[in-house]
């Protein structure tokens, strides 16, 4: 069985897409990284992007969030064209983004970090704060502690908690398992599963490709700025070509 070759029209066949990029070209300054990327994330869907280093996985997320130079194509979110909007505007649309590193405010307390997550609201949403503290009890225990003094795993939870403060429809996670001790990686994936089960769509970039594909609904394999394969996570895992080329056999 072979992974389906991605066509530019495939995204258009579905109408219930939350996020859709069509023929997206983007990069930094003059340097183009993405070359005609077509991706979609449905409501409450869990999608991962895997691929070799330098393929532009993180750039996809940054481009969706308005952090790169837009060079062509469109991004729609919940039926609205958000191509090349500023991050300050995109955050209002119901999408949150957790960068790979430096994703907490080190010198602010845990509680202040979460408050910043809800900056665009008039007041701190107490109910949502409760939800996040229930999901990550360690954050409540350490709420007066400076984020910079937390362990790597706790910082990752805080970064997710911060992104969840607006109760987004889509959560974009860039390498959530990076830098975590091996025994914490599984726990992190469990937490992401449960966030997804609670109704938030996930778009995730992961280096830990096998585990990510095992967990997700659907996956993309990105190579040299183009999406080469798209299929359900299990199908990609079992695809001989994908295994040989990108998953180390």
């Amino acid at each position: 069985m072979s992974g389906s070759q991605q066509g530019a029209t495939q995204g258009a066949e579905r109408t219930d897409d939350l996020l859709e990029t069509r023929d997206l070209d983007a990069g930094y300054g003059d340097l183009q990284i993405l070359d005609g990327v077509d991706m979609r994330v449905g409501d409450e869907e869990y999608v991962t992007i895997v691929g070799p280093n330098g393929a532009g996985k993180s750039t996809v997320m940054k481009s969706v969030f308005g952090l790169t130079t837009h060079m062509g194509g469109t991004v729609t979110f919940a039926g609205e064209d958000i191509t090349a909007l500023n991050p300050e505007d995109i955050i209002h649309k119901g999408m949150s983004y957790v960068p790979q590193s430096d994703n907490v405010f080190d010198t602010l307390t845990v509680e202040e970090n979460l408050e910043m997550g809800a900056y665009i609201l008039d007041s701190v949403p107490e109910e949502q704060l409760r939800v996040i503290y229930d999901r990550f009890p360690i954050l409540e225990e350490r709420k007066t502690q400076k984020a910079g003094t937390l362990s790597g795993g706790q910082q990752q939870m805080l970064a997710m908690g911060r992104a969840l403060m607006l109760d987004p429809d889509l959560l974009m996670l860039d390498e959530p398992s990076a830098g975590l001790a091996p025994d914490l990686v599984d726990e992190m994936f469990d937490r992401i599963d449960s966030i997804n089960e609670a109704g938030t769509a996930i778009l995730m970039v992961e280096q830990n490709a096998k585990e990510a594909l095992r967990r997700c609904d659907r996956g993309y394999v990105l190579v040299q700025g183009q999406n080469r394969y798209e299929d359900s996570g299990d199908a990609l895992l079992n695809d001989e070509e994908v295994r040989q080329e990108f998953l180390g056999g």
Binding site: D102, Y119, I120
Partner: peptide, 24 residues
């Protein structure tokens, strides 16, 4: 104050402040 905290957040990490929706 909320705005004061946002100032501290931005002095700490500009890129993150931006994706958090802090008006830089």
């Amino acid at each position: 104050t909320k705005f004061g905290k946002a100032m501290r957040a931005m002095s700490d990490n500009k890129d993150l402040a931006r994706v958090t929706g802090i008006p830089t």
